[in-house]
Amino acid sequence: MKTPSTHNIESSAATESSYVAPTPGRLFWSFLSIGAFTFGGGYAMLPLIRKSLVAKSKWLRDEEFVDAIAIAQSSPGPIAVNIAVITGYKLSGLQGTLAAVLGATLPSFFILLIVATFFLGIQENRFVRAALTGMRPAIVALMASAVYDVGKNTIKNWRGALLSIAALVLLIPVQLHPVFVIIAAAITGLVLNSSRQAPSYESSQQQSSYNQDSNESRGGNS
């Protein structure tokens, strides 16, 4: 695909070497580690998905990641499986989808088989419970960190910030279902942008001429 130019990447640069193109095999392993290490399901999986697909491998930008979440949330089924379907297809076609879904599903499948066969009382084991009590606050931290990164890279002006706050009010005190929040936000986006010429990021989304403005963008290619 593209060769990334060498430039400073400040955050999450520990593993940064060179861009490796997504293949079904690599997608399988990425989603396997996501499926094996996320407890709690649903949104608790998002930080690991983002770390793997956006920060580490640079296969997706935050905008694309967020678009995938929007589609996943608006569709039936487990969020992690839905995101595996979307990103698998986007990055590597039908084979990519199957590989990603298999990766996201297999750890859960085999671990549950083992538990159902040998460790039926595992949920009462005090060491397991203690480990999880320790893990839960870390999951909060991971999610908060993901909110910060995703917000920084996708909220680009005060209108976006206001929209985000409005959505937060609808979600937490009002308790509106997420799907309705997404629909309301889509309508707001349409109304706000119908009078303007270009939305905040250009329509060359797939051909990807990326800005260098964020320190996690994939690299300067054009």
Partner: peptide
């Protein structure tokens, strides 16, 4: 694109609300 400029900030709120 216009719809998604509205959706993206809402998704950030979604993750924040889940947190």
């Amino acid at each position: 694109q216009a719809a998604f400029t509205g959706i993206r900030p809402a998704v950030v709120a979604l993750i924040a609300a889940a947190t």
